[in-house]
Design a protein around this nucleic acid. Structure first.
Lengths: 124, 124
DNA sequence: TTCCTAAATGATAATCATTATTATTTAATA
DNA sequence: TATTAAATAATAATGATTATCATTTAGGAA
């Protein structure tokens, strides 16, 4: 894998945010800084980095979202606004990984995704 | 919601299988029995039933899959073949639901999705 | 440093699952 | 039986993602 300027900047951006942007959202943020970058390049690099476990790839409401935080954490997805919240309760994921039968499956990771209504949407 | 023959048959079929078919896979199975049914009808009904919590809607590899089993269970997705396996270890989901802060979020459900390689793909 | 080559890029076209549209049909109620 | 809101079938539109391909580039070898 070659260390291109584009990939470096994509990863840098993803690490700098606490949201879970889509490829297009990353593209929109980076485009002003690297005016020649193509949306396809952003897609390609995000997929490549997800494939090599440098970042996480999530599927929410028919779109892929990316997360540079590799720590054992969980997500909450609001079914109203679609926002993805981080939860940092490693014991939840650890419990799941402890319980699953590792003889039957070779487990690489576990995704714990809570669904519901976030406090912002509940108030409205 | 009107009780149409199409919706009845879609739900019946989904309840009869242990796989987690996409809308198109459901359509292909039902089409021979209801020759006039439209793929859009299958999509519409599956979404409607998922919305009203009669079935589950899962996102795997860029496609929606549906599951009529509402019991508290987990999934394992093989990154090789893409097959979705069921796990029945309610304690895993219960632990997660116990741990999450219900004050901050109104949680409706939790999805626990393990990723890795299934035993079939590992052998090959 | 220059050359070489596989890999990556940018631009754009293609894909394809899903959703929207609309005329027609139907379930359910009065 | 009549009414009507909801659902259907058929098809078009959508849109995120992937594929294609000519051009450029990173990085190692000579």
């Amino acid at each position: 894998m070659k260390n291109t300027y584009q990939r470096l900047k994509i990863l840098e951006h993803l690490k700098s945010v606490k949201t879970h942007p889509t490829a297009e959202q990353v593209y929109n943020k980076i485009k002003p800084k690297i005016s020649t970058i193509s949306l396809a390049t952003v897609h390609r690099n995000l997929n490549q980095m997800a494939e090599s476990n440098q970042i996480l790839k999530l599927e929410v409401k028919g779109q892929y979202h990316f997360d540079a935080d590799l720590s054992l954490h969980q997500h909450f997805v609001c079914s109203e606004c679609g926002k993805i919240y981080d939860l940092f309760q490693p014991d939840i994921s650890e419990y799941a990984l402890d319980e699953i039968d590792q003889n039957k499956f070779q487990v690489n990771n576990v995704q714990v995704i809570f669904n519901g209504i976030c406090s912002k949407c509940k108030k409205i």
